[in-house]
Amino acid sequence: MESTLEDQLKNFFQLIKEGRTEEIYSILSENPVIDSPVAGRFEGNDSVNEYLLQKKKWLDDYNATVDPFSTIVTNEAIVVEYNFFISVEGKTKDLPVAIVGMIERDSVKEIRIYYSTWPLYGKHSGRRPILEENPGLFMPDIVRDYMNAISGTDAEAVVKLFTESGYIREPSGSEFTHIGEKGLRGFYSSAISGGGIPLKHCTCFTDGTRTAVEYNFSEWNGVKFPPEAGIAVYVTGNEGRLLAARIYDDADPSR
């Protein structure tokens, strides 16, 4: 059976690891772009090939295994979430990764990659803005309500938007997951009580259940810093509240 763009993007990192670059190029447009944390921006076939070689070495060096676990497919983009399992100083750590593949005429013209470097280096590296803010962006109501709530300082206003078993997972991995009313209240009381987290929204892709929002932000809990880029995926339950919020950025307000 012929692979779809969704299949190929789900397998993107596995294809890199196995050196199957022809299969990757088969879905890319003539002048592809890849934008990645730390490594930077790669434009055009020669530059993208350099990225693929670098990433293959990275995957080998960290003895990485890749588990794609969630996908959003729209006419404009395909968003894939992965759990990477990497070896760091003899210990296995999980590294959440998300990519956005922008679609143009049945090919992928740009891939934007997001993850935190905390599991790798024990510190955040930051991520310059990639996109411009789009103030008129459409979002599902529950996601818009969440954005408004985290911009303020009322943790209870955020907690009530989640289901009883809802959770937020921070960018640094599964050990930074806060589940249920108690866990959510503890996290948001600490995260927004001093000034909130106002996000500048750039894109929004939704399939009705899962919604991905790319954003820039330069303020966290009253601390201001140079603008950073990120993405978050929000999962909505049957009752219209949030089942999950999974964050992929690399900001460190203390830097």
Rank of each mutant, 00 (worst) to 15 (best):
E2M: 10
N11L: 12
F12H: 13
F13W: 13
I16C: 13
G19T: 01
E22K: 14
I24R: 13
S26N: 05
S26C: 09
S26A: 14
I27Y: 05
I27M: 13
N31L: 10
V33C: 12
D35V: 13
P37F: 05
V38Q: 05
G40C: 08
G44Q: 03
G44I: 04
N45Y: 01
D46H: 12
D46N: 10
E50C: 09
Y51V: 00
Y51E: 07
L52Q: 08
K56L: 04
K56Q: 15
L59Q: 04
D60Q: 14
D60A: 07
Y62F: 15
A64P: 07
A64D: 09
T65C: 03
P68Q: 01
F69R: 02
F69S: 02
S70F: 00
I72W: 08
V73A: 09
I78F: 11
V80K: 07
E81F: 00
E81I: 00
V88K: 10
T92L: 13
D94E: 04
P96Q: 03
V97C: 09
V100E: 15
M102F: 15
Y114H: 02
W118A: 09
W118D: 06
W118K: 05
P119I: 05
P119G: 07
L120I: 14
Y121A: 08
S125W: 07
G126W: 02
R127K: 10
E132M: 14
E133G: 05
N134A: 12
N134M: 10
N134F: 04
P135M: 06
L137I: 15
L137D: 02
L137E: 02
L137A: 05
L137G: 07
P140C: 02
I142P: 08
R144E: 08
D145F: 02
D145L: 03
N148W: 06
I150A: 03
S151H: 02
A155T: 04
A157N: 14
V158E: 07
K160R: 15
K160D: 10
L161H: 11
E164F: 10
S165N: 15
S165V: 10
R169V: 00
T177F: 07
T177C: 09
R185L: 15
F187E: 01
A191G: 00
S193R: 04
I197V: 10
L199P: 05
K200N: 07
H201G: 00
C202P: 09
V213S: 11
E214L: 06
F217V: 04
F217S: 08
G222N: 00
G222P: 04
K224Q: 05
F225E: 00
G230S: 03
V233Q: 11
Y234N: 01
V235T: 15
V235N: 11
T236P: 04
G237S: 09
N238F: 08
R241P: 12
L242W: 12
L243G: 11
A244R: 11
A245N: 14
A245P: 10
A245R: 14
R246Y: 08
I247P: 05
R255N: 10
